[in-house]
């Protein structure tokens, strides 16, 4: 079980967290203006890289805040965590 450094609470057991998939996928400004293909991209398609991945986590059994993390999906190591709304930090993969 990993430790995930919640940017509000500090490192906590992974079991306290809920995973939220890729970060920085904004809800479209005007969905009705999108083609079916564009809408499908928003609804169903996410990046799935092998390597650093900016993703969302929620400290669901703690402060219940959503935050973002860059995690290496090969090692599962967390390279950075940052609060929602903050820019993605530069990380070395």
């Amino acid at each position: 079980m990993q430790l995930i450094p919640c940017p509000w609470c500090g490192p906590r057991e992974e079991a306290e967290f809920h995973y939220g998939g890729q970060a920085h996928v904004a809800y479209p400004e005007d969905p009705s203006a999108l083609t079916d293909e564009e809408w499908a991209q928003y609804v169903f398609f996410r990046e799935n890289p092998s390597g650093p991945f900016a993703e969302r986590w929620s400290h669901s059994a703690g402060c219940r805040r959503w935050f973002n993390a860059v995690r290496d999906t090969r090692s599962h190591d967390l390279l950075a965590v940052y609060r929602a709304g903050e820019p993605m930090p530069e990380v070395l993969s």
């Binding site: 939220g20 929620s58 929602a84």
Partner: peptide, 13 residues
């Protein structure tokens, strides 16, 4: 509740 929190915090803070 999680659904609401997710939208609120990640899309419409």
């Amino acid at each position: 509740l999680d659904w609401m929190e997710e939208w609120l915090q990640t899309e419409w803070p």
